[in-house]
């Protein structure tokens, strides 16, 4: 018995290592490129022969990248905040109340999530130009919220359904209004769900390229993924690969920090002790 479990563990371990390596190699490759000098960029060595921070210095010296970074952070944070707050309220209603049109609401939100975004790009472009939202922060925040909401509603209603209903009844009996019961009892318990949803929504907004490239035209609202595509070298003949890689590393770091920061909050068993069994 012990033998088979060790073997099984070994096999699983091997598989895990394979998956991790498979997923991380491209990331490490980009990181490696970002530290190379232009001359050694194409030497095919995984570990740079000559280390340099020149690429990083160059992206932060241009206003282009810094502006885009500010835009990205601002737009993604605002969109995440609004989507999670709205999503939490909608998910709470869906998981707790029985109202006419509930199935329709869930169906429509699923429809939105499945709708091919690329087909909406041209109409959105026209609409935003007419409304004066083109190339502004709200011009990106609005579509992000629209497409993040279904995601938020789905994940959050699953979390809300796990919270024992008795807790809410107890809060009501203790004299809480519906709003107080939600804020003081349900929301704190749904915190892991809120953080999980926030991470997912943030990553969605942060990574988006499609909307960002079509609905912006200048540095006013251009986000990092788009800004990267506009990177050019010092001169027409210079290859911006190193700079692009450095920028890619820079925009991956916030995501990793974000996940690591919130991961500590995503602890299961937060509701343990509430009800028996």
């Amino acid at each position: 018995m012990a033998d088979t479990t060790t073997r099984a563990k070994f096999r699983w371990g091997l598989l895990d290592v394979f998956v991790v390596v498979f997923a991380l190699i491209p990331v490490l490759w980009i990181a490696s490129l970002s530290f190379k000098t232009p001359a050694t960029l194409t030497d095919g060595k995984f570990i740079p022969r000559e280390w340099t921070l020149e690429n990083y210095r160059s992206i932060f010296s241009t206003d282009q990248f810094v502006r885009a970074l500010v835009n990205s952070i601002g737009i993604a944070l605002i969109a995440t905040l609004i989507a999670v707050v709205l999503g939490a309220m909608a998910a709470y209603a869906i998981s707790r109340l029985d109202f006419p049109g509930k199935k329709l609401l869930v169906g429509v939100s699923l429809l939105i999530a499945m709708f091919p975004q690329v087909s909406l790009v041209s109409p959105l472009f026209e609409i935003e130009r007419q409304l004066g939202l083109f190339d502004t922060w709200p011009g990106l925040i609005l579509p992000y919220i629209t497409f993040a909401l279904p995601l938020a509603i789905y994940t959050l209603s699953a979390f809300f359904k796990q919270i024992p209903w008795d807790l809410e009844k107890a809060a009501k009996m203790d004299g809480a209004t519906q709003g107080q019961a939600f804020r003081r009892v349900i929301a704190p318990l749904a915190a892991p769900g809120l953080f999980t949803t926030a991470i997912l929504v943030f990553i969605f907004c942060w990574n988006d390229f499609l909307f960002a490239i079509t609905l912006t035209s200048t540095e006013r609202a251009r986000t990092v993924p788009v800004a990267l595509s506009f990177f050019t070298g010092e001169s027409q003949f210079e290859d911006p690969t190193g700079a692009i890689c450095a920028a890619a590393v820079v925009i991956t770091v916030p995501i990793i920090l974000f996940v690591l920061f919130f991961q500590r909050r995503i602890v299961s068993g937060l509701t343990s002790g509430a009800v028996k069994g």
């Binding site: 009844k169 009501k172 318990l189 937060l270 509701t271 509430a274 009800v275 028996k276």
Partner: peptide, 20 residues
Amino acid sequence: KAPRDRDIAMVFQSYALYPN
């Protein structure tokens, strides 16, 4: 009247303590 306006307290089978 809503439960909060009835001034009665309830003990649940599941206890329903606030775990946080």
